[in-house]
Nucleic acid binder design. Structure first.
Lengths: 338, 338
DNA sequence: CTGAAAGCGCTTACAG
DNA sequence: CTGAAAGCGCTTACAG
């Protein structure tokens, strides 16, 4: 790369100190500098195509104006949509985003967080992975500003922004029951991550309230690593029970997408023979022949709030902000029984 | 944030110079340092939880081990999948990725590139936007290492990795014609971006070769800003011609996704009454009742090659590498006419 | 009003 | 073999 022009180059050319150049270009103590000199400095900066070296500035000011973002997988629609919202919100405040994918893997998460901290990010937005409470505690001990997003640890006092996942699943099941469904299956992940746990709790509780306590055979938990295949098996099992389910709640966008691909190969018809609801949606649930009824994730609020809370936390205050956003049920064609 | 421990802190505690600490922790000139001291330094570093300040190191070494990635929109499946591949490839080489979305907007692109350069990224991977040739020339003049991805400027001598989009569209049309289709529409973007231009050229040329020269009314170009609505209009028009088309080629994943949502509301049946091919696919084209025939983008090769070429370009050589990857036709159910 | 000087936390050529 | 010293490119408290 070509040698870049520095403050020193400008200072030499104009015949002043680098300090003065810095003051002028940063519009500081403007009053004290003669208009003439100031103009000359500005002109020379443009002429030499000067660009601030943010690395040098950061070293001095101890601020990088960089946010570290840790998502499960940037290739997943949920993560990438959130990333885009955070990018926009950060950009408004002159922040840039460094990102990384944890793959729901605690080791990767730890490595990633360390890399981001080495790079002196001013703070972190994290969708925390299973078994990473200790990593979060570390951040607290080091007083690193951070906000958890989508998931959190219920017994830890941290900033977070998430949807109320209990309510989400509860609303989904209520909708299915009100639609006349009697046997409602759940396809979810086998994990202790809080958002998923809450979704299961919402499902079980809702069924109980309607006096249709969930049968064990209605709940299928698939592994994150082998989800596609296990979703297929889960569907096969739920539909081949002696009393097959008449509806299925999928606890995530990823799961319902796999399901739809499989359902397209089966004779069963949605919604006539099977009702479907998904928590979190994507284009893939919209292009299905019976666009899915879903629980809308408030991604815009989630991303914007998380960024705002993080920036506040960076700039000063020590107060903890915890936000549980309301889920919203959006009725599609996958639950309108004939 | 808590005060972090620096080399100085370790040096003081051990009673040596910061230079020595630096040598030990970086495993440099190991031979010359007594094992005892080295061990003590290492132990103290762990004890004090030392972490390298990459900002300080970068200022000194003039390397940040950061790649700047400029995509059209990180929320789009094409961009986010590519981002994930680049992230993984970068990580293998201890690089981290700063990203930003240009929204197909030349001004945003310029601002973004400048922000990334201010942050001293070692190089850039860019999916360049319409009318940004001058920005690319700037990079060349400043000898900034960069690789264009997905799109490029055919008359500029730059690194790039892209699919051969001419061949892609040509293969798609050939497939449709061989399947017995006579009137093949094209829904594409109104833009001068090279990849899209090439797709149109491939479409037109293929039709000519089969002596079915494209009628003007078969080609619908939608604006990027208002794509969803204009895709609907385009489909309406193509299907209501006095001689309606019997097949449509969509020149991007975004366009076909909008199309599928709309087609689900229409009586026309795929593939019996209408064949469809899309260039670039996603989950959304797979969950459609007739999973689409598509031209596969070689995203893995694209992302990995782009990263490799960039890293080589950063580390030394000045040779220009230009890669046109082969498209691959994947036959789905949207073109198997009865 | 103006600018020299110190210092952010590192790395490394160089002197002893 | 060892470590002091210089310097990366900035910012800003401080002295004049």
């Amino acid at each position: 790369m070509k040698k870049k022009t520095s403050l020193k180059d400008i200072a030499q050319k104009v015949g002043v100190s680098t300090a003065l150049v810095s003051y002028v270009l940063n519009n500081k103590k403007e009053g004290r500098i003669s208009k003439q000199i100031a103009e000359k400095i500005r002109a020379t900066a443009i002429e030499l195509n000067y660009k601030t070296n943010q690395i040098a500035r950061s070293l001095k000011t101890n601020k990088t104006y960089t946010i570290g973002l840790v998502v499960a997988d940037i290739a997943n629609a949920f993560s990438s949509t959130l990333a885009r919202i955070i990018e926009d919100e950060a950009e408004k405040n002159n922040y840039t985003v460094l990102f990384g994918s944890s793959d729901e893997n605690a080791q990767k998460s730890e490595k990633l967080i360390n890399v981001l901290l080495d790079r002196q990010v001013d703070g972190l937005i994290i969708a925390p992975v299973e078994d990473t409470a200790s990593q979060i505690v570390q951040l607290q001990e080091n007083e690193v500003p951070f906000v958890l997003i989508d998931r959190y640890f219920p017994d830890m006092k941290t900033n977070y922004v998430a949807m109320d996942n209990y309510k989400a699943a509860h609303a989904a099941v209520s909708h299915l029951i009100n639609g006349g469904n009697k046997r409602i299956g759940l396809v979810t992940f086998k994990t202790t991550i809080f958002n998923i746990v809450e979704r299961k709790r919402g499902y079980v509780t809702a069924l109980k309230e309607y006096k249709t306590s969930a049968k064990r055979s209605w709940i299928r938990e698939v592994s994150i690593q082998n989800a596609q295949e296990e979703v297929r098996e889960a569907i096969d099992q739920l539909l081949s029970l002696s009393e097959p389910v008449d509806a299925i709640l999928f606890s995530s966008n990823l799961l319902s997408t796999y399901a739809l691909k499989y359902l397209n190969t089966l004779p069963v018809k949605v919604p006539d023979q099977l009702n479907i609801v998904t928590i979190d949606q994507s284009d893939a649930s919209d292009t299905f022949y019976a666009p899915l009824t879903y629980i809308r994730q408030p991604l815009l609020e989630m991303g914007q709030l998380a960024t705002k809370i993080l920036l506040e936390s960076i700039s000063k205050n020590n107060k903890i902000t915890q936000v549980n956003l309301e889920p919203e049920l959006v009725v599609g064609k996958s639950t309108s029984k004939v």
